[in-house]
Amino acid sequence: MSETQPDPQQPQQAEDAVTPVLTTKQAKRANATVMGMLIATGLTLALCLVPVLLNPSPKMQARNVDVTAAANQAAGDAGYSPLDPELPDGWTANYARWNTGENNGVPTWEVGYVTPGSEFIALTETNAANPTWVYESTGDSAVAGERQAGGVTWELRDSSSGKASMVAEVEGLTVVLTGSGELSEFDVLAEHVVEDLRGN
């Protein structure tokens, strides 16, 4: 009895039979679907970009607030003469205010300065500082060293947000400088702060 040998061509024919073949119309429909998806995605991205481009990220605005007038107003509440340093050309203040310390129990005098390099440094002054307040005021920063400015040794601090801080006690008042400015800009502000404090 002879055994039937399998035809080596049969598996190949089975594979060929399973391979799908698209007609010209089907291929056009498939391509049209892909093109439609690409166009829809492009339009969606364009619509998302329009508001972003129309609203660029704000740069630090120089409002040039009258710090002297605000300091004179705050003096009665503060019990001391709030800082109003005379800074070189190019420095402007975008806010100056008295904070009653309702939230943390530490009343403060606060001024926000825009540097000539368009960076920002906040000045905070108080006669009621404590270690917790200093830590929070400097953005939960760690002491990184010391820096001399205006004949005073300032505590230099770095925070995880990348902002720097300088802290010093001068004439019985604690001053905190915090912001994104260059350390050379911090030095300029610190020197004028010490000059103003010692002149008062």
Results as ranks from 00 to 15, higher is better:
residue 44 T to R: 03
residue 42 G to C: 08
residue 13 Q to D: 03
residue 84 D to H: 13
residue 182 E to S: 06
residue 72 N to I: 13
residue 126 T to F: 07
residue 183 L to N: 10
residue 136 E to Y: 15
residue 131 P to I: 07
residue 87 L to E: 01
residue 104 N to L: 02
residue 137 S to P: 12
residue 43 L to E: 03
residue 153 T to F: 01
residue 197 L to A: 00
residue 145 G to R: 00
residue 195 E to W: 02
residue 79 G to Q: 06
residue 49 L to P: 03
residue 64 N to D: 12
residue 189 L to Q: 00
residue 59 K to V: 14
residue 136 E to T: 15
residue 159 S to G: 07
residue 166 M to N: 00
residue 71 A to C: 12
residue 88 P to R: 10
residue 143 V to Q: 08
residue 170 V to A: 01
residue 130 N to G: 13
residue 137 S to N: 14
residue 68 T to G: 14
residue 1 M to E: 01
residue 89 D to E: 07
residue 192 H to P: 14
residue 25 K to R: 05
residue 25 K to S: 06
residue 63 R to E: 02
residue 110 E to L: 15
residue 78 A to I: 13
residue 112 G to H: 01
residue 41 T to P: 05
residue 149 A to V: 13
residue 76 G to A: 14
residue 88 P to G: 05
residue 193 V to G: 04
residue 148 Q to E: 08
residue 175 V to Y: 00
residue 46 A to L: 14
residue 146 E to Y: 01
residue 23 T to M: 12
residue 16 D to V: 05
residue 183 L to Y: 06
residue 158 D to A: 00
residue 8 P to K: 09
residue 180 S to H: 01
residue 86 E to I: 15
residue 135 Y to G: 01
residue 13 Q to F: 06
residue 186 F to I: 09
residue 158 D to W: 00
residue 62 A to E: 08
residue 47 L to K: 01
residue 104 N to W: 04
residue 117 G to R: 04
residue 55 N to K: 08
residue 81 S to I: 10
residue 108 T to S: 15
residue 99 N to M: 08
residue 54 L to W: 09
residue 51 P to R: 05
residue 91 W to I: 09
residue 106 V to Y: 03
residue 21 V to S: 11
residue 83 L to M: 11
residue 97 R to W: 08
residue 137 S to W: 13
residue 52 V to K: 01
residue 137 S to I: 14
residue 136 E to W: 15
residue 143 V to M: 02
residue 101 G to S: 11
residue 127 N to Y: 10
residue 137 S to T: 15
residue 162 G to C: 12
residue 25 K to E: 08
residue 151 G to H: 07
residue 67 V to K: 00
residue 51 P to M: 10
residue 123 L to R: 01
residue 180 S to C: 02
residue 145 G to K: 00
residue 30 A to D: 02
residue 58 P to G: 06
residue 182 E to L: 03
residue 12 Q to F: 14
